[in-house]
């Protein structure tokens, strides 16, 4: 079974990421069985059917797809995937923060695509708690990257108070 990092632990995981093949349309594909992260357009167009499957629901967003599209249904999802086409495309970090901080999503947010160890720390701060690393990378080697820094200046999904507030309260030093 494939492995991912979830909540700072390496775990086996059998969610599959579904995508439309060439020439396929969201309306007429057969919905795969099991634990599936559906592309946004499949979710939007086959919503009733997916809900009727009565299985945990997953969806994933491309880097140019807005989290606002999920807002009315946010509590239905067990997993929301965020796709990073290249690790240098930072849009997914805004998507993750919006899901966590604005839309109060409490399920799993999973980074998929070009996911590499050097970005894990920032992704974690933005609210991503699961990482499907690029297939050629070692999870064991990547895991410690979640602890690259012992503190951070800004507020983000992991820490609502910027360092200056904690400093004024006399906390870190």
């Amino acid at each position: 079974m494939p492995r991912i990092i979830r909540d700072a632990t390496i775990v086996e995981d059998d969610w599959q990421v579904a995508d439309l093949g060439e020439g396929q349309s969201a309306l007429d594909i057969t919905l795969p069985e099991g634990l599936v992260l559906f592309p946004l357009n499949v979710w939007l167009q086959r919503r009733e059917e997916i809900i009727a499957r009565n299985q945990p629901i997953g969806v994933w967003l491309r880097s140019d797809e807005a989290p606002e599209a999920l807002v009315g249904d946010i509590s239905r999802f067990s997993v929301i995937g965020i796709h990073f086409p290249r690790f240098t495309d930072g849009r997914g970090c805004s998507t993750a923060r919006l899901l966590r901080e604005r839309h109060r999503f409490v399920g799993e947010i999973r980074a998929i695509g070009d996911v590499l160890q050097d970005q894990l720390f920032a992704m974690r701060r933005c609210g991503i708690n699961a990482f499907a690393l690029r297939a050629d990378r070692s999870l064991e080697q990547a895991l410690p990257a979640l602890k690259t820094f012992s503190d951070s200046y800004q507020a983000a999904a992991d820490e609502p108070r910027p360092l200056f507030r904690r400093r004024l309260a006399g906390e870190p030093g």
């Binding site: 930072g90 805004s94 970005q119 920032a122 933005c126 820094f149 200046y153 800004q154 983000a156 200056f164």
Partner: peptide, 15 residues
């Protein structure tokens, strides 16, 4: 304060 805010900002590392 801007320097601190911008340093390692997790959301804006890949603008």
């Amino acid at each position: 304060i801007l320097r601190q805010w911008s340093t390692f900002h997790p959301e804006f590392a890949f603008l």
